[in-house]
Amino acid sequence: MTPRMTCVTQLASPATKQMYTRILTSALFAGAAAGLIAALLQLVFVQPVLLHAELYESGELVHFGGTPVSAHPELPGFDLMRDSLSIVFTMLTYTGYTLVMVALMSMAEGRGAAINARTGLIWGIAGFIAFHLAPGFTLAPEVPGVAAADVGDRQVWWTATVATAGAAMWLIAYGGNKISYLIAVALLMAPHLIGAPEPDSFSGPVPTEIGALFAARAFGVGLAAWALVGTFAGYFWQTEGERAEASA
């Protein structure tokens, strides 16, 4: 009679439980670490550009008026509430990313791929392409104040572009034949050939210099952060696996 009882409780076998623990633990460690560093990089390199743009968004500064405007106005400094929230939300966002990445890493390892900090770096760059570069290629990182189409429409396009670019990254890495490369190229190009929702007219009050610097900084910090996401995810996935084996 006892075996029948065992049958019912096998739904969450020890191996499955161990897999949950390994995925969640590695993702939390990697996401918190990469997210914290990403948040600090953003505060140092992106936030001043954003605050500068907000002076134009609010109308406090106006360019192309009668007199030239200084390119170096006094910016608000560190805002405890605002910047702490930014740190928390950056860590949360990157933990979301690492949960997805570590889960995919576990699947790839099941197919025979080597997952560690070194290979994780490539995963991180692929993640950057899927989640940041691909949508930003047409919907450029927006400085506050720019004219843009309806946010809901842009979110649909953003999500679809991330999904197609992510699928393309997987096909390039694990497709293994010419057809899959061709499908990947089509998936990467399609959202941009179709085009993203665009505003009806341009009404942005922010100087182009600030907008361009903001996009460049957002991409640069994004790449650094994603490189860390992949490296940490690979590292913790490997070490958590070794720890589980040692204690088994």
Partner: peptide, 17 residues
């Protein structure tokens, strides 16, 4: 069911994002 933990993590991660 071996893929369940991975699916759970992906859904959770996308939910957070």
């Amino acid at each position: 069911l071996g893929f369940l933990p991975a699916v759970f993590a992906i859904v959770l991660g996308l939910g957070v994002v």
